[in-house]
């Protein structure tokens, strides 16, 4: 299964710069080695930030989440049995933290899905910008209307590039459930976006999507 570009690049970087395996660092942290924990933080912070950002939709909240997650993780290292990769366990803790936080906030802020600062948008024609804004709004509504589990699954897949197996581990459900959730979420998103594609410059929008795909390759 393909991984999204950002994640695979990150993972490659992490692997290439990885001097000490996560498991060894975890063992050292358990023995009270603060520097080992710092290495883990520095190694995984960007990925955790992206996961938190995808779910919380606010850069400040996401940075808070990164801090909170690592503090929680430090306190719960005894819970980490090593059955999954440390990075996957970390994402699981992050997702749970973000879901808790979203529940406390009661609403899901989808404004971050698309904004006018998106690189390249400002260089587009006014028509393109209008279409993007309309699609962005439709996407926001569709994501906000998704259930928490479906939204989490689609964000982990589309934004963070997690594989089905990883999403299953993170969400604590079978792989088949993940596939089903993704299918359900995509169906809703597709229904929400199709009218815009059909009514407002399908060809140009399709080209944009195609460019995006090529950029990732």
């Amino acid at each position: 299964m393909n991984a999204a570009p950002s994640a695979s690049k990150e993972e490659k970087n992490a692997m290439s710069s990885m001097e000490t395996p996560d498991a060894e660092l975890v063992a050292r942290v358990r023995e009270g080695d603060r520097n080992a924990f710092r290495k883990l933080v520095e190694r995984h912070r960007e990925r955790i930030y992206r996961v938190a950002l995808g779910m919380l939709r606010n850069p400040d909240d996401a940075m808070d989440a990164v801090q909170e997650v690592f503090i929680r993780v430090h306190g719960r290292l005894t819970d980490f049995k090593g059955e999954s990769a440390f990075g996957t366990w970390l994402v699981r803790v992050t997702v749970n933290y973000c879901i808790d936080r979203q529940r406390r906030q009661k609403t899901w802020d989808a404004r971050f899905v698309v904004d006018n600062e998106w690189e390249g948008v400002s260089e587009e024609s006014p028509e393109h910008q209008l279409v993007n804004a309309q699609i962005g709004e439709a996407l926001q509504r569709a994501l906000a209307e998704l259930g928490e589990e479906h939204r989490t699954a689609i964000m982990l897949r589309e934004v963070n590039g997690l594989a089905y197996e990883e999403i299953a581990e993170v969400m604590g459900c079978p792989k088949g459930t993940v596939m089903s959730r993704l299918h359900h979420a995509r169906k809703k998103l597709q229904v929400a976006l199709r009218p815009f594609l059909e009514e407002a410059g399908e060809r140009d929008l399709a080209d944009r999507a195609g460019e995006g795909v090529r950029r990732r390759e």
Binding site: F112, G136, E158, R208, A209, G212
Partner: peptide, 13 residues
Amino acid sequence: RALKLSGEMMRAP
């Protein structure tokens, strides 16, 4: 196309 685009628009920001 709709699904490709939605993924792009979630990911870009």
